[in-house]
Design a protein around this nucleic acid. Structure first.
Length: 153
DNA sequence: GCCAACGTTGGC
DNA sequence: GCCAACGTTGGC
């Protein structure tokens, strides 16, 4: 099983929205690196941290699980959608998405600042300089460490 | 709202 | 295929 962190701006879609819906197709990924990870490495059952970005206190707010294989992101075919990609066709789709299911909120916000302060998380891609990917892998030991942080306060 | 750090685009 | 210009992300 793999572990991931996926970012979303809560103004667009928040952990509360996911809790209400239970399941959401994670559409709108338009970065090749993020797509390739989703397409090539994500598996049903993988565990994911839900991360709120572009807010006053960014950080991890919940847990979710991948419940589908990657499949074509329908918004790439919709000319009226902001994620429309004129170069994508149903025959040759360019972008994929997966479905994720709500597991739970974290007990509290685990802020980016707190993650940065933890010495053992130095290799976490989220904390590497200039990493703006919206989907990032999380090592198993980092995953466990972050859950310890959650419980510690 | 600023701006660093990217990724993408397109002219050549 | 290079690279300057441009757009975007996202923390601050």
């Amino acid at each position: 099983m793999n572990y991931w962190l996926m970012k979303c701006e809560p103004d667009v879609f928040s952990i509360d929205d996911l809790a209400r819906q239970k399941v959401e197709g994670w559409y709108g990924i338009r970065n090749y690196q993020a797509r390739n990870m989703m397409r090539d490495a994500m598996r049903i059952g993988d565990q994911v941290f839900f991360y709120h970005s572009n807010v006053k206190v960014p950080g991890i707010v919940g847990l979710m699980e991948v419940i589908s294989k990657p499949y074509p992101d329908p918004t790439q075919f919709d000319p009226d959608h902001r994620y429309f990609d004129p170069k994508a066709t149903p025959e040759q789709p360019r972008w994929v998405q997966v479905d994720v299911q709500y597991i739970r909120h974290t007990r509290r916000l685990i802020s980016l600042e707190e993650l940065k302060k933890d010495d053992s998380l130095g290799e976490l891609p989220l904390l590497r300089r200039g990493n703006r990917l919206s989907i990032m892998p999380v090592g198993k030991s980092d995953w466990q460490r972050i859950l310890e942080l959650e419980a510690a306060n």
